[in-house]
Nucleic acid binder design. Structure first.
Length: 245
DNA sequence: TCATTAAATTGTT
DNA sequence: AACAATTTAATGA
């Protein structure tokens, strides 16, 4: 179980560094909240957004660092956890998939990050500076509505995460974690096919790849998922969410 | 476009 | 943890 060794690169945040670039036209449509902004505000928002590639194992946020960016996943998969530094057992809060944005709670309170964000694979991540974040909060009704909704949905997800932790049956843990990744509001970019390897899912749920493979086979037999090479489909999210072994 | 090869991912022990 | 089988991605004719 201690073998969760990543090819551990631990460079500082990539988004602010010279490794970041501006937004590409094709990426704008993947940022759903932009369409909720008033047109005159959207201009600055898009101009201030930075995009960077992050390698597997790389950390975007570290516990205790001052919150400086609001992050969003353009493509790839991240893991939100509390692990390493602290005394407690490593706990994965959630995975963050395409279309997911996070860090708003930290920025709102002008606090330090309370979790680590680590890339599980090569990912493309967008970052909005804290100044722009507050600038939009002060001006845009649509943005406020989005952030509020985001906070609410994530609260629900964290409550669900606590329940997942209590589940002992691996198949059920995998089922619930997958259901969380298919959350249509938090991760609108996922679509019906989630790209995730069984190894990545193992890191996320805290199981071996072998056990994940076994769980996926069971879940497929139960008809709640369809396994494919390098990913899977969920025909009925509610059935997956309520799966019992 | 097709065939070949390397790399990634899965299935199984 | 190791290994074989399968699928995808990359390469060059």
């Amino acid at each position: 179980m201690a073998a969760h060794a990543f090819p551990s690169a631990t460079r500082a945040s990539a988004v602010q560094a010279s490794r970041s670039r501006g937004l590409l036209p094709g990426e704008i449509e993947h940022i759903h909240w932009l369409s909720k902004l008033e047109p005159e505000l959207r201009e600055r928002a898009t101009a201030d957004l930075r995009v960077a590639s992050v390698a597997p194992g790389e950390l975007l946020c570290r516990v205790g660092r001052q919150g400086t960016f609001w992050f969003g996943v353009i493509d790839g998969l991240l893991k939100m956890s509390n692990d390493s530094a602290s005394m407690a057992m490593p706990i994965t809060f959630t995975g963050v998939s395409r279309g997911g944005w996070f860090g708003e709670g930290t920025l709102l309170k002008n606090e330090v990050y309370r979790y680590n964000i680590q890339a599980l694979r090569n990912s493309v991540v967008a970052g909005m500076p804290v100044a722009t974040f507050h600038w939009l909060l002060d001006r845009s009704i649509g943005f406020n509505r989005f952030v509020m909704n985001q906070l609410n949905e994530r609260l629900g997800q964290f409550i669900a995460a606590r329940e997942i932790d209590r589940l002992t049956h691996p198949d059920e843990r995998v089922a619930r974690s997958l259901a969380a990744l298919f959350h249509p509001v938090l991760y609108p970019g996922v679509g019906d096919m989630l790209r995730i390897t069984q190894q990545e899912l193992g890191y996320l749920v805290g199981l071996s790849r072998q056990r994940v493979n076994q769980a996926l086979t069971t879940l497929q037999a139960a008809g709640v998922i369809v396994v494919a090479y390098g990913g899977l489909r969920v025909p009925d999210l509610e059935k997956l969410r309520h799966y019992t072994a």
